[in-house]
Nucleic acid binder design. Structure first.
Lengths: 209, 209
DNA sequence: ACCTGAACACCGTTCAAGT
DNA sequence: ACCTGAACACCGTTCAAGT
């Protein structure tokens, strides 16, 4: 019997379900959402006429909306912590849907929210006294940390097949650490490395008093 | 009529077709390969028993086969230059097919050539006195530089829309540098940053004489 | 307006059957 | 050994029909 008295679906309900499935299986399907919500898959099209692509796009909008650039502009906070905040918030936004990364980076950046993100980091680098001619290169490096780490977040755990046991050094390293923390550690090191790089590029030594 | 006199399929023929489809549509399907080769899709399973996963793995093997790891193991070369060689050769291999990156990354690594790459870098890090418990994290950071930069190589030029002129800091940075050299500069800075990071993690200062 | 159910064109994979 | 063709369990999407 169609049309129950109380509404079963909405844009937000669908997006929430998609996010839940992504969290569980690193991916989602239209049929999966339908099943999860106890609804016929075709019903989704009454709320998202653009189909699966629209779901992906709406999710991305949701992610970028939460980036708080104001905090990154606060001149009272040292630029080191602001670089860290910039990388972490940008990466967190991107990593929520690793499958969308090729779509994100394959296109020219022309939307305001994204340009605002890069304007913020350019201002930050200027403040850290990175020479103007090196700023674009540093931004590309930061980009690679952000997207590389976000992509890494979509990798399987374990990343390396543990049954292939002819790699003594690699296995020693894996045994000594936590593979589930691999991605987080990689991001932290990437940020550390980026900060050291910026420091080394600074035209004048930062003031110490 | 089955079984033509001359063989229609082989491992290499299938892999070539997959690469061609990836180049064209950023992805490939079993059915697509079958159609492209004028063959029934089920026939592929006589040559690649592992199905689609085996195709992905074989592609990865092909990319990495040409990496010369011997040079990276030469103990006479300082580890700094060997890290640089490792990143550059690995990235060069990956960047041959940027479109394949998301496909390659989503799967567990269990082929010998790829594992050999990571074994080499693990040995290098041990030699540079990076604590065992930090090595996996550093490897993840290097991974992000490699894949982030490779992905960046597939980005449009210019990356940022020049007509959106409300971003003064970003535009100043772009004007002061060469956008066409953006990716190369990003990789160089990434390597510099990685070397500084490894240096800072070393358990004992490296010998200076 | 909101949801169903049938339908369509895909997808990966298995397997008995033909040569 | 190599390929076909039918079959199965999926996938995204469309659309007429019911309330």
């Amino acid at each position: 019997m169609p049309r129950p008295r109380t509404q079963l679906l909405s844009r937000d309900i669908i997006l929430d379900a998609a996010l839940e499935l992504i969290g569980k299986h690193h991916d989602f399907t239209i049929l999966g959402i339908g099943k999860h919500l106890g609804v016929n898959p075709s019903s989704l099209y009454h709320h998202l006429s653009g189909g699966k692509d629209e779901i992906v796009n709406s999710l991305r909008e949701r992610f970028y909306r939460n980036i708080d650039l104001a905090a990154l502009r606060d001149p009272r906070v040292p630029w080191q912590s602001r670089i860290e905040s910039w990388v972490r918030s940008y990466r967190a936004a991107v990593a929520q849907y690793p499958a969308a990364i090729p779509i994100l980076i394959g296109r020219i950046v022309d939307d305001r929210p994204t340009l605002a993100i890069y304007e913020a980091i350019a201002a930050l680098l200027a403040e850290a006294r990175v020479p103007l001619g090196s700023q674009v290169g540093v931004i590309a490096m930061l980009d690679s940390v952000v997207f590389g780490s976000a992509i890494d977040a979509g990798s399987p755990v374990p990343l390396w097949d543990p049954t292939a046991d002819t790699q003594p050094r690699l296995h020693a390293a894996i045994a000594a650490s936590d593979d589930s923390a691999r991605v987080a550690a990689g991001l932290t090191f990437g940020i550390q490395a980026a900060i050291m790089l910026v420091q080394s590029l600074a035209e004048e030594p930062t003031a110490e008093r």
